[in-house]
Amino acid sequence: MVENIKNILLNAKGFRSKRKILVIESDDWGSVRMPSVQAYNALLAAGIRVDQCGYNRFDSLENTDDLTALYECLSAVKDQNGNSPVITANTIVANPDYEIIRAAKFERYAYETVTETYQKYQGSTQTLDIIKQGMAAKMYFPQLHGREHVFIKNWMRALESGDEVTRLAFDNQVYGLSTTIVNAKRKSFLTALDLDNFADIKTHEVILKEAQELFQGAFGFKSTSFIAANYTWHPLHEALLHKIGVDTLQGSRAQKVPGDYEGYKTIKHYMGDSNSLGQVYLIRNAGFEPSTRPNVDWQAKITKEVQAAFLVGAPVVLSTHRVNFMGGLEEQNRTQNLQLFGRILTDLVKRYPDIEFMNTVQLANHIRASKK
């Protein structure tokens, strides 16, 4: 009850509309978190408890089976306009090139593009073809999540110093070991826009420019929204994103702000707020994460979150991660979660016959139009 009242009050502070809008934002598409069952087993055998982190246990590069199953789930549900739910698939457009990094003795970082990653891990670019089929069917809408999901400076520093666990993960082509399963006290390797000092901003400017170019090369258009890895970015990054055409900032209610100080500061945002550059903030106010939090009653939780939002006229931005729909490492993960997701979406349509499914950019444009 307390949580429900809190959600109602927070939703009431942001943008409101008479329309019942549902957006699904899903992160990490294109990234390689756990490359194979063999890598998982090797790390587990070495005593690294990858079984205790849902991302390390279940999250693999999306393949055609994953995408086909996702489309089947989404296509079975329709809103009042005959539209299926659409996944705003926030995409990482490059991954570390382990061979080049090793050849350079960990003194130089290098990456491969996401199209090269599909070729390397799956032997073809058929996955990208299936993605484009989903785009044409308006069930899959890619947006930019970053060039890679790596705090490069921090990761390379650990590799160059010979950190044993980081090197072992590297040998298995893994960068994303959760800080919850390693003993070393360090910052996450996943916070791509993290920084040690403000000189790092210049490096990020190059990274973000390349990210947009790679995104356009893969999908044929520029991304106008962006979600920072692990909700971690500095206000200075917003100007860099504005330069590459980003006018919408996805995120949670709390932005983690890095700087040349220990830890992070926090900036609070509300749905539909905008900054001095005119960029609109979209705030995630519901979530679906069964792969990493299996003991939650997700249907009951989402029902309450949607109710709290619609009660005050707020749109629902449902946060989820690719891991919840992946079956490459464990097929049951995909099967069970898609069945649950389908039941939840079907129930929402029954509860709210006037619900409307939108992608992130459509919601942002609706907010802008409503303010005129």
Rank of each mutant, 00 (worst) to 15 (best):
V312H: 02
A104N: 15
A42E: 09
Q133V: 14
V206Q: 08
S252W: 14
N4E: 14
I87L: 02
T346E: 11
L44D: 07
L208I: 12
V296R: 01
R322I: 05
K268P: 00
D297V: 06
L241E: 04
T191V: 15
L340D: 10
A46H: 05
R322E: 06
A211P: 02
L318E: 04
L241Q: 08
L241N: 08
A158V: 03
D347Y: 07
V150A: 02
E356R: 03
V312T: 05
S178C: 13
R157D: 08
Q332K: 13
T266D: 13
F341W: 09
T166I: 09
Y264T: 13
E164L: 10
R33W: 09
A228S: 13
D171Y: 11
Q133I: 14
G54M: 13
I201D: 08
K20Q: 12
K6R: 11
R343Y: 09
V182Q: 01
F151M: 08
F106I: 11
E72Q: 11
P315L: 05
G272W: 00
L177F: 06
F357H: 02
V317P: 02
L348R: 04
G176S: 15
P142M: 11
V50P: 01
E330N: 15
L208T: 00
K268H: 15
T88D: 04
L74P: 02
A286E: 08
H145M: 10
Y121E: 05
G82A: 04
L338Q: 04
K187C: 02
L67W: 00
G263L: 01
V323P: 01
D97W: 09
I302G: 01
A364S: 14
P290C: 12
T335D: 08
R186L: 01
Q38W: 04
A12C: 14
W155D: 00
R293C: 14
H145E: 07
Q250D: 10
K256V: 13
D200L: 08
Y231N: 14
T346Y: 08
V165R: 01
W298T: 01
F219A: 07
N83F: 09
R293W: 13
D196H: 06
M358F: 14
N337K: 00
R343P: 02
I302F: 02
F58V: 12
F106Y: 15
